[in-house]
Amino acid sequence: MIAAPSAPVPPRSAVPAPAPLVVGDGRTVRLISLGGELTDGLLTRVAGDIGDAVAAVEKFWGTDWDREIVIIATGSQQEFLAQAGLDPNRQWQDIAAVSVADHVDLAHHRASGQRMVFAPGAAAMSDQSLRIVLTHELFHLAARADTALDAPRWLVEGVADFVARPATPLPPGAAADTALPTDADLDAAGPQRVRGYDRAWWFARFVADSYGVDALRRLYVEACGPGHGDFETAVHRALNTDTAALRARWAQWLTG
């Protein structure tokens, strides 16, 4: 999930000093535990997976992104909302983690105050689920300085899931809805949001399968990057087709 803070975040001095970790080609990872043994254990698992997560993001997106990665594990829902700067009036109970920034300067390709914040419930995730969430949020962190605030969220999330999730067979009934995904699919908590994320992920997989992984990256840049045009224009520039042909091919992909 990608978000911009809507509330002040506590000063960095208010949280414990992180344990240093260096991964990949020299990226520094700061792991900050706020919940005692529970979050200590979560971050131990994160430390074991972060190298593979960095490799997956770099394989798709490249290496031109933040050299420091800050990961905070919170011990309560109140801490989660505060550290991530999230609106407490919205529904966040089914969100395991978010990637946020204090400020984004798209013109100069910079983001400041970037951090990944895990909710307290993340400690109960399976190892596979944790790896997926970690890699998904890391992609958001990597792409932050190249992602417009008004980018189509369904595509932002679908591409993040493409980077993070292993391909699995589509479930029965996947072809019941052949419309393109929409942002509204991600707004309601519960099963509708899960289904919305899945369909966005399937669409990203479809583009990669049908047009190539490089084409999916181009589509992200054209549809979600600074100064992006409408989706129709992005599809034409990235995939050399129009949305009518894209939707027809998408429907065929869903039906196998």
Rank of each mutant, 00 (worst) to 15 (best):
2 I>D: 14
2 I>R: 15
7 A>M: 07
9 V>C: 01
13 S>H: 07
15 V>W: 09
24 G>M: 05
29 V>Y: 03
37 E>D: 15
39 T>C: 05
40 D>L: 07
41 G>K: 05
43 L>V: 02
44 T>Y: 07
46 V>I: 09
51 G>Q: 03
51 G>F: 01
55 A>L: 06
56 A>T: 04
58 E>A: 11
62 G>H: 06
64 D>H: 13
66 D>G: 15
67 R>L: 06
72 I>C: 10
81 L>E: 09
86 L>G: 02
87 D>P: 06
95 I>C: 07
99 S>Y: 11
105 D>H: 08
110 R>H: 10
115 R>M: 03
125 M>W: 07
132 I>H: 09
136 H>L: 04
136 H>Y: 11
138 L>I: 00
138 L>W: 04
139 F>P: 04
139 F>Q: 10
140 H>D: 03
145 A>N: 09
145 A>C: 05
153 R>K: 14
156 V>E: 07
156 V>P: 00
157 E>M: 08
157 E>H: 08
157 E>C: 10
158 G>S: 05
159 V>N: 03
162 F>W: 15
162 F>V: 05
166 P>C: 03
169 P>T: 11
171 P>M: 10
176 A>C: 00
176 A>E: 14
179 A>T: 13
180 L>D: 06
182 T>P: 09
190 G>S: 06
190 G>M: 04
190 G>K: 09
192 Q>L: 14
192 Q>S: 14
195 R>Y: 12
198 D>R: 15
200 A>K: 05
200 A>C: 02
201 W>P: 10
201 W>D: 15
204 A>M: 11
205 R>A: 08
207 V>K: 01
208 A>L: 05
209 D>R: 01
210 S>C: 08
214 D>V: 11
215 A>K: 13
216 L>P: 00
216 L>R: 05
219 L>N: 03
220 Y>W: 12
224 C>A: 12
231 F>Q: 06
232 E>L: 07
238 A>L: 01
244 A>F: 13
254 L>N: 04
255 T>H: 14
